[in-house]
Design a protein around this nucleic acid. Sequence first.
DNA 1: GATGAATGAGGATTCATTCAT
DNA 2: AATGAATGAATCCTCATTCAT
Lengths: 194, 194, 194, 194
Amino acid sequence: MRVFAKQGFFNATISRIAREAGVADGTIYLYFRNKDDILIQFFNYKAKQVFQGFKREAEQASDAIEMLFRLIRRHLEEFQKDRNMAIVYQSEFHQIRRIAEPQIREMYQLYSDLIARIIEQGQQEGSIRQDLYLGLVKRMVIGTVDETISTWLHSGGRYDLAALAQPLLDLFLRGIASPRAWQPSLNDEPAQQG
Amino acid sequence: MRVFAKQGFFNATISRIAREAGVADGTIYLYFRNKDDILIQFFNYKAKQVFQGFKREAEQASDAIEMLFRLIRRHLEEFQKDRNMAIVYQSEFHQIRRIAEPQIREMYQLYSDLIARIIEQGQQEGSIRQDLYLGLVKRMVIGTVDETISTWLHSGGRYDLAALAQPLLDLFLRGIASPRAWQPSLNDEPAQQG
Amino acid sequence: MRVFAKQGFFNATISRIAREAGVADGTIYLYFRNKDDILIQFFNYKAKQVFQGFKREAEQASDAIEMLFRLIRRHLEEFQKDRNMAIVYQSEFHQIRRIAEPQIREMYQLYSDLIARIIEQGQQEGSIRQDLYLGLVKRMVIGTVDETISTWLHSGGRYDLAALAQPLLDLFLRGIASPRAWQPSLNDEPAQQG
Amino acid sequence: MRVFAKQGFFNATISRIAREAGVADGTIYLYFRNKDDILIQFFNYKAKQVFQGFKREAEQASDAIEMLFRLIRRHLEEFQKDRNMAIVYQSEFHQIRRIAEPQIREMYQLYSDLIARIIEQGQQEGSIRQDLYLGLVKRMVIGTVDETISTWLHSGGRYDLAALAQPLLDLFLRGIASPRAWQPSLNDEPAQQG
DNA sequence: GATGAATGAGGATTCATTCAT
DNA sequence: AATGAATGAATCCTCATTCAT
């Protein structure tokens, strides 16, 4: 992962990976079928584990809002903890889809379902509003967290990423509009556009 | 772009690109310094143009909320219009950063500044709340729109992407919390962040 | 073929073949799909041509015995003319079967059918005896000629191979037994063995 | 030999051979110097033994014709009995020459000398005609038997190979020509060769 | 004696790039 | 300006062989 993070999947050579691992080139092939398989196994073990950790973390919360908070915080924490994983995950994600499609799909589903369940629970608890397009909420949470991690990585990872969980949650919950001015009038306004 | 979209940057060969363009391999090198330069020029011309279009679109609006709406809608529209660009942009973005870093950075800056100006104007107009971490708002908008495009691409692009602009805007403005239950009690929690 | 003849198919490297051909390694792949394909194309063009020459040669004869003679002589002549082909053909034949099975099978069939037709014609003409197991006759002709070529190759190819056509024909026609002593009595003799 | 027979010498791996033998890869090197040595030892022991068996078999006969018959029959029997040996011997023979040249040469000599002695004895006994090119007779016997085994192997070995000894012997002795028609007129043609 | 993990040299193949036409 | 045949560096991967256990 260190090599993939530094060079990117395609620019990384088996020789380089082997050297970094302190073994001979051929040794790599005792543990991985081929170059692709290094990514596939990474996603099958390490990354899947991380994503299952998200689920366990969320389930410790007592209400939906706290679940969402814990999910976001844990996500940021884990990626902050392992920068190489973060880089590979962020930078190679779409490339990886071509290679490790089933693994990626499974992880994405896991995450996506988790958000869906949290939102639905929040709606039952009355803390989350009913008139939501669930798919868009998922995309907002996933996209925003991803972008937050990306920005952090490109900044060189110098600030505390996990500390952004709280303000992100606030943003998701309250949105950006002024409570007085916009909340009520918005109901009819969008009808004019499009 | 068609070839990059279909095969990915690294798997695309100059031969394939030349064949798709109906010219000889060598001809490519009369217009591009090398393979990387194809991407660089793409971002320098086509993509930059698209992003400048976002700016012009936003500036036609009379208030910040409408500006944000127009930005999002135009973004979705443009990517819906040119799927190849969308795929290259979404799938190769992080890979491309290694190759066309300055071009990407410039475009990103353009977009980022546009959002910043919209938010600040909204705050002056009183439509956007004051207690926002501007950087996070940017990440939310960019990340969510990106993720929305990605999801659309992976679905095969069968539904109307631009139609999501309105519900996305609503989500950004109002957030996901129930107005009664959460708005007040959350006020003191995130007040610490700037 | 020169390289295959000298080193054998498996020990021959593309680099060596390219150097011998006076081109770069990559150039080989402009004309051959892969290493195997070099053999396959050789058999598809050059060798098939040679074998079809056998057929034309045989057809010029007026009777079966002369046909057989011409076939054998032409076979020896062609292999004598192109030692590299001879070596590759003799040494790599069985290896080649694994690679170019259809091509080999076709050529073998061609040759085999030719002998069959000659023998049958000879039987009609009365010059070849009727009580023959046709399959064995084919194997005798093919095997003996092959072995004759092999021996010639291993001797360094110093004597005139084609000159052996006449004595070989004699051997095939008359056998090795003394005419007086054995011809008649053999009919019942073999019954005792086995 | 089982592995060599199935995969060919060059495609066979030490790992595969070791697995088939039920030992570890390294163990192979306690008994064989290297991969080539497996072939060399095979020819030095097993194959040499088989060929010496031919000699003993032939020596049990009372006259030259029977000796020849026994040689051929034993040859076919042994190769029928051990298909793996047959395949390795037939398919890898020419490849093997590069590796186990001295061993092959020795065996070939053994066989060749045996035929020579049989023929010479037959000539003294009066059963074999005098005007023969001994070298060609050897090539005929060896080549034909080889080709017969090859054909049998490629047919899948479904018929009784050893049963072909008798018709082969008949073919060698009497040739293919009709006794009346050809025997006399041919007499003067090949008379020039020794 | 047996093991099998580790080695690393070697080779097939790809493909960005060049350049004579 | 356009071509496309030729190039050869670069890289993945295999597998015979070694050697510490």
